[in-house]
């Protein structure tokens, strides 16, 4: 139903991000292929956010390289990200979505229709004229999702989208993510919630101290963890 994912696969080869002496990402090699969602797990500070930013193209690795469908430095027209703490622009909810549509270069004539569609998709149609900054945390998170989807992405990065939400709001987000993934969008999501990782992910990557420790299907990861770190993480004993 949608155009071929031009930015996929995303390939990281020995990608490293160093700030001073600290390696936020340490020689990560990873392929994000079209298909079911990939979930990045790991304790706080493991490098999840950095990895998402590098894969999105917001941050260039200091060593190694990233390619999108084999190319470097591709403008992020088919990628979108929901940041960990999204900033609402000082506009209405609909204004935020319209802004994203304009930034994505959507034709002007489609703004109204697509804004309404996207707000309906995230369940905010009733709040369209509400100032975005007056929305609750969960509603803001959903609005951020609508904004990201306005880019009509082939790949959607989500950085701990439910980190500070209650169970109901978390469920709402997960439902939207599932619907988006079902439409063929590649979802790459970070979380430190193991239950969520199980519910959403089909592939899991465990990060620890900037390194990819283990990756595999969700079933394998939870049923037969291959490394000591993975076993500790599943048991809730892995610390930074």
């Amino acid at each position: 139903m949608r155009a071929p994912a031009s930015d996929l696969p995303i390939t990281l080869a020995e990608a490293t991000v160093r700030v001073g002496d600290v390696a936020l990402l340490d020689r990560i090699s990873l392929v994000l292929a079209p298909g079911a969602p990939t979930v990045l797990v790991g304790p706080n500070g493991a490098g999840k956010t950095t990895l998402l930013r590098v894969a999105m193209g917001l941050l260039s690795p200091t060593h190694g390289r990233v390619t999108w469908d084999g190319r470097e430095a591709v403008s992020a027209t088919r990628r979108a990200i929901v940041l960990q703490r999204p900033t609402m622009l000082r506009r209405s909810a609909a204004g935020n979505v319209r802004y994203a549509l304009r930034a994505a270069g959507a034709p002007r004539g489609e703004w109204e229709r697509r804004t309404a569609e996207l707000l309906r998709l995230v369940g905010l149609e009733a709040f369209s004229s509400r100032p975005a900054r007056r929305l609750s945390g969960g509603e803001q998170q959903r609005l951020a999702l609508a904004r990201a989807l306005a880019r009509d992405p082939a790949v959607l990065f989500l950085d701990e989208p439910t980190a500070s939400l209650d169970p109901a709001a978390t469920k709402a987000i997960e439902d939207i993510v599932a619907a988006v993934a079902a439409r063929g969008v590649k979802v790459v999501m970070s979380t430190h919630d193991l239950g969520q990782a199980k519910r959403v992910g089909s592939e899991i990557v465990l990060l620890h101290r900037g390194r990819a420790i283990e990756s595999g299907t969700t079933e394998m990861f939870f049923a037969k963890p291959q490394t000591e770190e993975a076993r500790k993480f599943i048991a809730g004993e892995l610390l930074v």
Partner: peptide
């Protein structure tokens, strides 16, 4: 706004206006 506008891939001139 910096991160959000970068994430939305907003061009420099448009950033100033925004």
């Amino acid at each position: 706004y910096r991160d959000e506008l970068a994430a939305m891939n907003v061009a420099a001139a448009a950033r100033v206006m925004t």
